[in-house]
């Protein structure tokens, strides 16, 4: 410690008497040191400004309206109208596509369920492709909400499964099990979200507000079914490939840095249509319907088939079922 400091610091009252404007700079007693500190500070701040200059890209990508946007559940219908118009304009500007973004709400009294007949599924992967195009997934990563596991016959051990097979299907010693979001009734991903950016709707669909998610990816760690995907960069979709029929909580083009997941194609199913993966399936393995409707095919299957759910021991209570024909 230098003498000048000690002399200056030994009497606390002297500091308040002198009342230097910026005591950091003024107290050492040596003008040379003061100047050096000032120069160092200026240089440091300038270097810091230069270092973080890539951040100037943010105002181009994030408008003030988007920055200030409230949580989905707090939006009035007027707010929603403005936001949907803004999102449509952004799709036009960033992707060159004329899209229509709606806000589909659950049909009262309906609870959706999905079942897959593992005796019929032959692993052709049409559902994976259909999900990819329907939901405006990033083309560079070939992203999809569905993974098809190729499993050894005689075993339900996921550890021996293969998701990256490229040979012809079906193989004689294998069976095939597509996995996507199980729309759990007790979803661990919803519990862990620190900002309530994901929640379960009345019809059982777990949704994400892509404009509220902060991108911490805790939900990705919590999900036992590998159902969630993160937008590691802004998705690239060619203008002509964009599906223009979009919804706020489902297949609109997602922003960079947020989490997304299967939403049972709510922009279709809440209009009474079927999910894209089901329509694309050539084997008829997929059954989708209303669990509250006693006449629906899905309820008939739950009653008459031996049905199981994935990882039942975790207590997640999926609304997604698997069964075999015999």
């Amino acid at each position: 410690m230098s003498d000048s400091q000690r002399a200056n610091g030994s009497d606390p009252s002297s500091a308040s008497n002198a009342e230097p404007l910026l005591p950091i700079l003024g107290q050492s007693g040596s003008t040379r040191r003061t100047m050096m500190k000032g120069a160092g500070l200026t240089l440091g701040l300038a270097a810091f400004g230069k270092a973080i200059s890539p951040l100037t890209a943010i105002p181009e990508n994030v408008s003030v309206a988007e920055f200030l946007q409230q949580h989905y559940k707090e939006l009035s219908s007027d707010d929603k109208k403005t936001i949907l118009a803004r999102l449509e304009a952004e799709a036009k500007e960033n992707y060159g596509a004329e899209v229509s973004i709606s806000d589909h709400r659950p049909i009262p009294g309906v609870k959706f369920g999905y079942a897959i007949n593992l005796s019929k599924c032959n692993g052709n992967g049409k559902c994976v492709e259909a999900c990819h195009t329907e939901n405006n997934h990033d083309r560079t990563t070939q992203e999809s909400y569905i993974r098809v596991l190729e499993m050894d016959k005689g075993s339900m051990d996921l550890e021996t499964a293969n998701t990256t097979y490229t040979h012809t299907v079906p193989q004689d010693d294998k069976f095939y099990m597509p996995v996507q979001c199980q729309q759990c009734d007790n979803p661990p991903c919803v519990t862990v979200c620190p900002v309530e950016a994901t929640w379960k709707e009345e019809d059982g669909i777990v949704v994400v507000d892509y404009n509220w998610c902060i991108g911490c990816r805790y939900c990705e760690a919590a999900c036992p079914y590998h159902a969630r995907r993160f937008n590691w960069e802004a998705p690239t979709v060619p203008t002509d490939d964009i599906n223009p029929n979009q919804s706020y909580l489902s297949n609109r083009i997602r922003p960079q840095g947020v989490v997304e997941k299967c939403h049972y194609c709510l922009h279709r199913t809440r209009e009474g249509r079927l999910p894209a993966c089901l329509e694309a399936c050539p084997t008829g393995a997929r059954v989708f319907g209303d669990l509250n409707d006693p006449e629906s095919e899905i309820v008939w299957i739950l009653k008459n088939k031996r049905v199981f759910v994935l990882k039942e021991d975790l207590g997640t209570q999926p609304s997604f079922f698997y069964f075999f024909d015999s």
Binding site: A47, F48, K50, A51, I52, S53, P54, L55, A57, I58, G215, F230, N231, W232, E233, A234, Q256, G257
Partner: peptide
């Protein structure tokens, strides 16, 4: 400063 620059790039270009 080197890391601050790296982080700024990450925020701008995405966590890719």
């Amino acid at each position: 400063l080197v890391g601050a620059n790296a982080w700024a790039i990450q925020v701008a270009e995405g966590m890719i």
